[in-house]
Nucleic acid binder design. Structure first.
Lengths: 394, 394
DNA sequence: TCACGTTTGTTAGTAAACCTTACGAACAAA
DNA sequence: TTTGTTCGTAAGGTTTACTAACAAACGTGA
């Protein structure tokens, strides 16, 4: 055994981790620490609002000196402003309040996920929608769709005279971290370098993500939880996932693509993808409305039939979510989409199914709720993406 | 609208992120950067084996000067040693090879997840099992089980004269990040502060984790992928999950507890938890072996009946995994447990089911394979946990 | 009223970390 | 022997955040 150890000590390489790509995290220089602390100050101000340098120092654990230094940098960049002295009467020298200059920048948010229309907005740093615009899609695909998106951005940029921090775009399909839309069948896109194209045209920072992955960022902002699943139901069904506060991309950048997962063991409607009983065949808006329309006008039986259809859809959603909730031990799942469809029997059935199919002991404080962001979820998520990418504010 | 902006700029706090706990990441001081870079050097040496300081510098991006400085520290601590000059003939001054001192430390790994026995091992830094020991459980629960585990650790410590880097323990049940076993029904544990107790008794660093969550660390070491799901089938069924190279704990520390997720929409055997058709009722070893024993001795029909049983179990596994694989876009799923049950029809059926229930386009390079770690997966995973916790080597 | 304590933000100096530049040692190849 | 290369170290500079100290500005209470 001694010989074995000796051999290991002279020629051995690790058995653990031998083949993996090296350096999961790179070197860290003092300047990186500085960048991090700068973002920390910004984050503190952004979340907690106006306060003194001393307050920030206490909150972050850095010293007043360091905070003053960092704040001076941030003020020079126009990101932070002084608001004058604090008014409440306390002993000691009056504090000078500082805050993120919330009026200094606007963000352009774009949502390409709807079937009929590309929607966009000028968004404030706090997430307020300041102005909106949209362009009808008219079935545009390929290059035409790219140009249409650019037209929308151009029109939005014309609607604000405030400096723009960046452009955030939520696109359907699979989007890689460099903002290349690898595949978006609805728009006829494959390997469209949307981020590069838009950035080149407008000379602004651009961030692109999958619509559901972007949407979950907006939801994360108004949630207490750091583990969060958003199910976005529209023309298709997609999901966005945040785990430990970090967005999940997936090994093939296709995290959240649950629309074509088969539900249950009793078949189901034929899907466009060729399989039977995909989640989309139960939940996608066109399918649901068609099914509801079919039973409408059945007189008294209509209401009950509607409920049955919606309840069954909710049950199917619960069936798919149960393994995900169990495996990730999620505490919060959010539903986004047309409220008249989702909020009611569908929602109730999903909650009920989820409870019946998971272990109550582990998922006691699980919440499945409707989104409060309504139709702006992707727009606001896109803004959060820019905020996070440009300022490090999460 | 101008008034709205002004208001936001003077009194506003962020709508995004207003209620979330502050400071997801704390301040970073230069010394933290140093610690990080130290771990980076260690990681580089550990993964790539003996090399010169200049090699490490090139690999990490730090300068030779800094590497020399960091290596001096590491050598002073006994973690790194010089191995003499490189032998191959090259121009220039011959390099002095350095490496992690792989014989300097041993690790104690303990696996409490088996029903009949607590197993443990002395593990080398490279993951070699150097010596083993075990204690029969004899149905011990509660305090007796804790003492039994301590006896095992004591006996293992007596079997090595090399300094011990730390003790890693894989326990069944829900384990929180502080090493408190919140709940482990099989061992009759609830809120047992295992980490503190063992650390206090042996005065060594101790890390405790759920068995499957620990097991996936071992599997991660020998895998190329940074997203990985381990399904561990034994007396129960559990999973361990790594996403973006980071272990997932879950909001209630119960990530991976998929044993009691209901499978399919056609009922199933009654489970101890009260539900019908939990994953465990299809896959847990006792259930499977009992079902196989029931058809044994049916002559010619036995082989075919066995296959059917195993295939059905595999299918059920595939059904549960499909939504998880879809939502996370996983590229690798690993099966661990008794090979005579898992490796064969069960495995095949699981792969088949998974392919049929997910979107081929997104999960093209998905692999579902058997673990190669056999019964040592938790022991070795526990060692990785210590390695990671003490040295920052992943 | 006035001394005292408190709080804020700044100045000055220090320690830590990494960098660049430079150099000697040791080797291969021409 | 000369030349060019590579390695490891030494010296000095820059960045970063810290501690210590202080002035300014404010309540409080004798």
């Amino acid at each position: 055994m001694a010989a074995e150890l000796l051999a290991a000590s002279t020629t051995g390489t690790a058995i653990f981790g031998r083949s993996r790509a090296l350096r999961p995290t790179g070197k860290v220089l003092p300047e990186h620490a500085r960048t991090h602390n700068r973002a920390l100050v910004l984050q503190t101000l952004y979340s907690a609002g106006p306060q003194s340098r001393a307050d920030v120092a206490r909150e972050t654990g850095l010293t007043r000196v360091t905070i003053s230094d960092l704040v001076a940098d941030l003020m020079a960049e126009g990101l932070v402003i002084e608001l004058g002295q604090r008014e409440d009467a306390r002993p000691g020298k009056p504090a000078t309040l500082i805050d993120v200059d919330r009026a200094a920048f606007h963000i352009i948010g774009v949502d390409l996920s709807e079937h009929e229309v590309f929607r966009g907005a000028v968004v404030g740093l706090d997430g307020q929608i300041i102005d909106r615009d949209e362009v009808a899609r008219d079935g545009a695909t390929g290059e035409a769709a790219v140009l249409l998106a650019e037209v929308l951005v151009e029109r939005l940029l014309a609607r604000t005279s405030t400096p723009v921090l960046g452009i955030g775009i939520g696109s359907p399909g699979v989007v890689d971290p460099r903002g290349v839309v690898r595949s978006a069948p609805n728009l006829g896109w494959s390997d469209v370098a949307l981020q590069d194209r838009v950035a080149a045209r407008f000379a602004l920072p651009v961030h692109v993500g999958n619509d559901a992955n972007v949407g979950v960022l907006a939801e994360h902002g108004s949630s207490d939880h750091d583990d969060l699943l958003l199910v976005k139901i529209g023309h298709g069904v997609g999901a966005g996932l945040i785990i430990c506060g970090r967005p999940v991309i997936g090994s093939g950048f296709a995290a959240g693509e649950i629309g074509h997962v088969v539900v249950g063991t009793d078949g189901g409607p034929r899907c466009a993808c060729g399989k039977d009983g995909c989640l989309e065949t139960w939940l996608a808006e066109p399918r649901l409305t068609a099914r509801l329309a079919a039973v409408d006008g059945q007189g008294d039986a209509a209401a009950s039939a509607r409920d049955d259809i919606l309840r069954e859809a909710g049950r199917r959603l619960g069936i798919v979510l149960a393994p995900v909730v169990g495996a990730l031990n999620l505490s919060e799942v959010v539903l986004s989409g047309p409220a008249q469809l989702l909020d009611g029997p569908l929602h109730e059935a999903a909650v009920d199914t989820l409870r019946k199919r998971t272990m109550a002991e582990f998922n006691r404080d699980l919440r499945l709720r409707m989104s409060e962001q309504a139709e702006d979820i992707v727009l606001r998520g896109a803004a959060v993406m820019v905020l996070s990418g440009q300022l490090g504010v999460t």
